[in-house]
């Protein structure tokens, strides 16, 4: 199966969950001074702070497990594109408010189930991070579900726009339920979450909210994959890390 040691697999696992938080948090922070109202600006920045906060805890844990003196910043700033193992859904560009809400909704529905399961991990630190993160993503799911319903059942224009967002982003949802070899190995130890098993519940949440929003669920079963398993990203990802890592790359080894 995999030639990773358990410890290596665990470092990668913690980092990969962290990557989802950092990258989607990064995208959320790009909404700064661009949201439809100040109240919504505040809401998105709270989400961003939650998600980046999750990444920090997971990277810190990964660094501790790694044992070579790394810090959270080594994970965010000094890894290359291929080392990031986030879901592609986390990295696709923000688009308009509808795209952003749909992404947050798909992701938060997944995160809620994922972190609920993670609280039962035999790894105590992951279980604790899962419990804290669960509270945050529960709010994100509530916030994004309500917005999805407002947009779906709002004006003709908003209905049409957000249906398009759903159709466009749908192909990125299949990857949520894939398992890497490392995850499968950790699953046997009761450490990792069985993401494939989350799908029926995720489907149920999505169907319920879409129905309330008078929106339809795409039939398309095609799924883009590669972020999580191989570090093969979308074209937009290179710009995220070019932006994010610019200071650390330009001034190596400095304290900030």
């Amino acid at each position: 199966m995999t030639n990773l040691s358990k410890q290596e697999a665990l470092v990668q696992y913690a980092a990969q969950i962290g990557d989802n938080g950092l990258i989607i948090g990064h995208r959320m922070s790009e909404w700064c001074f661009r949201a439809p109202s100040i109240e919504m600006e505040m809401a998105l920045m709270n989400c961003a702070l939650d998600l980046i906060g999750q990444a920090r805890e997971l990277y810190t844990y990964a660094a501790k497990l790694d044992g070579t003196g790394k810090t959270e910043d080594d994970f965010a700033y000094l890894r290359d594109e291929k080392d990031f193992r986030n879901l592609l859904l986390a990295e696709v560009p923000n688009g308009d408010w509808g795209d952003t809400i749909v992404r947050l909704f798909f992701m938060s529905a997944y995160n809620k189930l994922f972190f609920t399961a993670l609280t039962k991990s035999t790894d105590e630190e992951l279980a604790a991070i899962g419990a804290k993160s669960l509270k945050e993503v529960t709010y994100h799911l509530r916030f994004s579900s309500e917005w999805l319903i407002r947009l779906g059942d709002g004006t003709d224009e908003s209905h049409e726009r957000v249906q398009k967002s759903i159709n466009d982003l749908w192909a990125y949802t299949g990857e949520l339920f894939t398992m890497t070899d490392g995850e499968k190995m950790l699953l046997e130890e009761g450490i990792a979450v069985d993401t494939a098993a989350l799908k029926p519940e995720w489907d149920q949440i999505v169907t319920d909210v879409l129905t309330q929003a008078t929106l339809s669920r795409p039939e398309n079963k095609w799924a883009h994959k590669g972020g999580k398993a191989e570090g093969i990203h979308t074209e937009s990802f290179g710009y995220i890390i070019a932006d994010m890592q610019f200071m650390q790359r330009r001034y190596p080894g400095c304290s900030w």
């Binding site: 109202s37 109240e39 505040m42 809401a43 709270n46 309500e146 407002r150």
Partner: peptide, 20 residues
Amino acid sequence: SVHASDSEMALEAARDVYTR
């Protein structure tokens, strides 16, 4: 105070603005 289109949004905006 906050501006919001409905009561749920108002509640969440209040949370996001006044309980940080």
